[in-house]
Amino acid sequence: MSGHSKWANIKHKKAKADSQKGQIFTKIGRELIVAAKVGGPDPANNFRLKLIVDKAKAANMPNENIQRAIQKGAGSGEGDSYEELRYEGYAPGGVAVMVNILTDNRNRTAGEMRHIFSKHGGNLGETGCVSWMFKEKGQLTVPREDLKLNEDDFMLLALEAGAEDLDTDEESFQVYTEPENTEAVRQALLDQGLPIEEAAINLIPESTIEIDDVNQAGKIIRLIDALEENDDVQGVYTNFELAESIAEQF
């Protein structure tokens, strides 16, 4: 996991830009409903819900929208209508793709996923075809801005806090840990006075494929964008990295 990650940096910037769009509220609202339904409405006792509430606030989702979604999940039974699914497949160039879904219509979503993969030169695969390439990890983003620590000092702090691994780019540190340790590591970093820009449970590839062809990279990114634009899609994870020689073009 360690190492400079051009695509991860670009994807993080894209996510911040996407948070300005109204569609993100729809997706986060579904996540809040399901998390409250599964683990209860109190973020203090429901870590999954706490992460999503933090995500909602980072996206500037109004507090009344957040509370309304939590109440729906906890009280109305609306969370029962959403089903959590995971699709697996390949982007152009054999790049592995994992897609996390929350849907109220499995058949509709299956058709839409097949169409998106096919339209953009990919292939929807069978369950298990690429999931073995990924591990579920807690991921915390710490912005470098105003952080008076060099990489070695930060790594020492992160490891003492319980982190397993660290990735860096020009703008942030990415801290990885076991999913069940995410909150403990998050709190330990906060106790050290470090800002946490984002905390999430993500699917992290165990190894990556470097893409150095601009046309192929464009096809892969267009497939990812099309998947992320679908209302049912909550997360898209891949195992490709952009080569330094073409990263600036994206």
Rank of each mutant, 00 (worst) to 15 (best):
L51M: 08
Q234N: 09
S81V: 06
R108N: 11
D18V: 05
D232P: 11
M61S: 03
G111H: 13
E229P: 14
P205F: 05
I246C: 12
D191W: 04
G111Y: 08
I52F: 08
G122D: 00
D146H: 15
Q174S: 07
K27I: 08
I70F: 03
S2A: 11
L223E: 00
G218R: 07
A59K: 10
K219L: 15
N107Q: 14
A35K: 15
H4A: 11
R114T: 09
P179M: 02
R108P: 03
N239P: 03
M133P: 01
K148I: 08
F134V: 01
K16G: 13
N150I: 03
D169M: 09
V130L: 06
L166D: 00
L203D: 00
K55C: 06
V97E: 01
H120R: 07
I116S: 04
D153V: 01
G193E: 01
G125H: 04
L157E: 00
M113D: 03
L157M: 07
I70Y: 01
V175Q: 01
V233I: 05
A110V: 13
K50N: 07
I70E: 00
G75D: 01
A8T: 02
V34H: 12
D213H: 08
M61H: 04
K14D: 09
E164T: 08
T109A: 05
V130D: 03
I196Y: 11
D146N: 14
L189P: 08
F154Y: 10
K137Y: 13
I52S: 06
K37W: 03
S19F: 13
L149R: 13
D54R: 15
A247Y: 07
T26C: 10
M98F: 02
D191I: 02
N60L: 04
A243G: 13
I101F: 01
V130Y: 05
G22F: 15
I10M: 11
K11Y: 14
R106W: 01
N63W: 01
D169N: 13
I101K: 04
F117A: 03
N107H: 14
K119Q: 11
Q249N: 07
N9V: 12
D212K: 14
Y82D: 03
S2L: 04
Y176N: 02
V175Y: 04
Q139I: 12
N46F: 08
E88S: 01
D169F: 07
I101N: 02
E160D: 00
A58G: 07
A44L: 10
T208E: 00
D212H: 09
K13P: 15
D18K: 15
Q67P: 13
F25N: 11
A44N: 12
G121N: 04
S172V: 13
A96K: 12
R222D: 09
G77F: 11
F250H: 05
I24M: 11
